[in-house]
Amino acid sequence: MITPNTCNAVQFRILAWMAAEQLSVEELAARAGVSRSALRNIKKAGWKTSFSTVRRLEDTIPPTFNVDLSKASL
């Protein structure tokens, strides 16, 4: 289980949305207006990035998109 409101939860939400939209890392980077290198390790546990990048990614995801963290793991 992933604890809500943590870096892991944000990463899981982004990855879940990528999967739902069938987006590649390159497509996500383009939509969010960030560099591909900013997302180079997004699929690895412990991914680290800047708050600015996370904000841009979250702004790309519709606010109505929800994920169930109770069964989630990275």
Results as ranks from 00 to 15, higher is better:
22 Q>E: 15
18 M>Q: 11
58 E>L: 14
33 G>Y: 07
33 G>I: 13
33 G>W: 13
13 R>M: 14
37 S>P: 01
52 S>F: 12
27 E>C: 03
7 C>F: 11
6 T>G: 06
59 D>E: 14
52 S>Q: 15
2 I>A: 09
60 T>W: 02
71 K>G: 15
21 E>I: 01
42 I>A: 06
41 N>I: 00
73 S>V: 07
35 S>W: 01
39 L>T: 04
4 P>D: 11
11 Q>N: 14
7 C>S: 13
26 E>D: 12
68 D>V: 03
47 W>R: 04
71 K>R: 11
43 K>C: 07
5 N>A: 13
52 S>Y: 10
10 V>E: 13
31 R>Y: 03
54 V>Q: 06
20 A>F: 10
26 E>F: 04
71 K>C: 05
51 F>L: 14
10 V>A: 11
5 N>W: 09
19 A>T: 14
23 L>H: 07
20 A>E: 15
37 S>E: 05
25 V>R: 11
59 D>L: 08
11 Q>E: 07
27 E>P: 04
17 W>I: 10
38 A>S: 14
48 K>T: 12
46 G>M: 06
52 S>L: 15
32 A>P: 05
3 T>S: 09
62 P>I: 08
62 P>D: 05
10 V>F: 11
63 P>S: 11
27 E>S: 08
62 P>W: 03
39 L>C: 03
7 C>T: 12
63 P>K: 08
9 A>M: 12
18 M>C: 13
34 V>N: 00
35 S>Y: 02
5 N>Y: 14
8 N>T: 08
49 T>W: 00
43 K>M: 06
8 N>L: 10
61 I>P: 03
53 T>E: 06
30 A>K: 15
26 E>G: 02
40 R>D: 08
7 C>P: 07
1 M>S: 10
51 F>M: 12
7 C>R: 13
41 N>H: 12
66 N>L: 14
12 F>K: 08
52 S>C: 06
50 S>T: 15
46 G>V: 03
7 C>Y: 12
69 L>Y: 00
45 A>G: 04
70 S>M: 01
24 S>N: 09
10 V>L: 14
65 F>P: 04
29 A>F: 10
6 T>P: 06
30 A>S: 11
28 L>D: 08
43 K>R: 14
33 G>A: 06
3 T>H: 11
23 L>M: 12
41 N>P: 03
70 S>A: 07
14 I>Y: 06
39 L>Q: 02
69 L>T: 02
65 F>L: 03
50 S>M: 04
50 S>C: 08
27 E>L: 06
1 M>E: 09
41 N>A: 01
20 A>H: 15
59 D>M: 09
22 Q>P: 00
56 R>H: 09
15 L>I: 13
33 G>P: 10
58 E>H: 12
51 F>W: 13
63 P>G: 04
